[in-house]
Amino acid sequence: MARIGVLLMAYGTPRSLEDVEAYYTHIRGGRPPSPERVAELQERYRRIGGRSPLFEITLRQAQALEARLARLALGHSFRIRVGMKHSPPFIDEAVAGLLEEGIERLVAIALAPHYSRMSVGAYHAAVREALARRSAALPVAEIRGWGSHPLFVIAVAERLKEALEDLPRQETMVIFTAHSLPARLREEGDPYETELLDSARRVARVLGLDHWRFAYQSASATGEPWLGPDLLEVLEAIARQGEARHVVVCPIGFLADHLEILYDLDVEAREAAEGWGLSFRRTRSLNDDPLLIETLMALVSEALAD
């Protein structure tokens, strides 16, 4: 019986308003943000209750996956750890813990379904660095883009179907969203945008949707162009052109509730939509939904079968 380590990786989040500055400094590669920017970010967290639930949700995902793998009886024993990119427990710490438990193989999954070298690629690079730092040589399965996995597509489609249930289809626009990244990725041949659009098309096909668009959200002010169109611009265009009376935002690029969902969509985008006279609805996040756990279980099982 092999001892398999499964590492679930997420972006990270401050646990309190006092942690915001350290968290943001880490994101900026050690460069402290201005006091004004810290205060602005803290205010966003205040608007969603003072903190993001991302860490607790990720732990629930890990616990549910561990229980599901135990029931599957694949002939292995599993050790599941959570590692965050920008807040404790960091990926390095999680890898160290798995090695201490004597794992013989590692399956690394970023909890972001669509691959970009700047996002998912960075998570896997952190895993490789953590292993190299400890001179650990063991087989590693890096799960890259999995936004086209049939179970993920079904899970998103179920959430979207629920959100659309009592709305008139011809008067409703579905907007799939994902976190924007620098636009230079398009020229570099990064698969992020292609994978996102493929996921959206698959979900739309399952539900027979004709009336949908894709937009990006949560771009950072870095002084360079980011992928668009931006969600707020799309909402304005829909209202001005009279394309719909209702909008349902489906953040297909995200799995769990966190700041980009609870503030950027539920506060900022909602206020913008309603300001343009549109009714606004968001699909519920997958969080630790059983269908998502089944997807993660399938990813682990398929990786071990290779």
Results as ranks from 00 to 15, higher is better:
residue 1 M to L: 06
residue 159 R to A: 05
residue 136 A to S: 13
residue 82 V to P: 00
residue 110 A to P: 13
residue 107 V to S: 06
residue 11 Y to F: 15
residue 252 I to K: 02
residue 245 R to E: 13
residue 175 I to T: 03
residue 186 R to C: 01
residue 299 L to C: 08
residue 86 H to Q: 07
residue 39 A to G: 02
residue 8 L to F: 08
residue 287 N to M: 05
residue 262 L to D: 02
residue 199 S to H: 07
residue 253 G to L: 06
residue 200 A to Y: 07
residue 202 R to V: 09
residue 194 T to F: 10
residue 224 E to S: 11
residue 136 A to H: 11
residue 223 G to I: 05
residue 70 A to N: 12
residue 48 I to Y: 09
residue 17 L to A: 04
residue 292 L to N: 02
residue 253 G to K: 02
residue 11 Y to H: 15
residue 120 V to C: 13
residue 31 R to C: 02
residue 35 P to I: 11
residue 111 L to F: 05
residue 305 A to L: 14
residue 193 E to P: 02
residue 236 E to P: 02
residue 260 E to W: 05
residue 234 V to C: 11
residue 166 D to W: 03
residue 139 P to M: 08
residue 36 E to S: 13
residue 127 V to Q: 00
residue 97 G to R: 04
residue 12 G to S: 08
residue 190 D to E: 09
residue 202 R to H: 10
residue 231 L to N: 05
residue 121 G to E: 06
residue 166 D to G: 06
residue 182 P to G: 07
residue 183 A to I: 09
residue 214 F to N: 02
residue 108 A to T: 08
residue 36 E to F: 04
residue 187 E to H: 13
residue 212 W to R: 04
residue 117 R to P: 04
residue 138 L to D: 10
residue 89 P to Q: 01
residue 226 W to Y: 10
residue 184 R to E: 12
residue 209 L to Y: 02
residue 161 K to T: 05
residue 108 A to I: 02
residue 149 H to C: 09
residue 197 L to I: 09
residue 195 E to A: 07
residue 259 L to A: 05
residue 61 Q to D: 03
residue 49 G to H: 09
residue 57 I to A: 04
residue 234 V to F: 04
residue 119 S to V: 12
residue 152 F to W: 12
residue 247 V to I: 13
residue 96 A to I: 08
residue 274 E to A: 14
residue 150 P to G: 09
residue 269 A to N: 05
residue 153 V to D: 03
residue 57 I to V: 11
residue 116 S to A: 15
residue 284 R to L: 15
residue 161 K to A: 14
residue 291 L to W: 07
residue 21 E to R: 11
residue 29 G to C: 07
residue 11 Y to N: 10
residue 38 V to D: 06
residue 79 R to W: 06
residue 251 P to F: 07
residue 56 E to S: 12
residue 279 S to N: 14
residue 91 I to M: 01
residue 159 R to E: 05
residue 164 L to Q: 04
residue 239 A to P: 10
residue 215 A to E: 03
residue 95 V to H: 01
residue 48 I to N: 07
residue 283 T to L: 11
residue 117 R to S: 13
residue 164 L to A: 12
residue 161 K to M: 06
residue 4 I to W: 00
residue 89 P to A: 03
residue 11 Y to L: 14
residue 102 G to M: 05
residue 44 R to D: 10
residue 238 I to V: 15
residue 109 I to P: 00
residue 239 A to K: 06
residue 57 I to N: 01
residue 215 A to L: 09
residue 258 H to S: 12
residue 124 H to A: 04
residue 277 G to L: 12
residue 207 L to D: 03
residue 131 L to K: 06
residue 63 Q to M: 08
residue 271 E to L: 14
residue 102 G to D: 09
residue 43 E to W: 15
residue 200 A to L: 08
residue 63 Q to L: 13
residue 235 L to Y: 03
residue 266 D to Q: 14
residue 53 P to V: 06
residue 153 V to R: 00
residue 257 D to S: 12
residue 121 G to R: 08
residue 247 V to T: 05
residue 56 E to W: 13
residue 37 R to C: 04
residue 248 V to P: 01
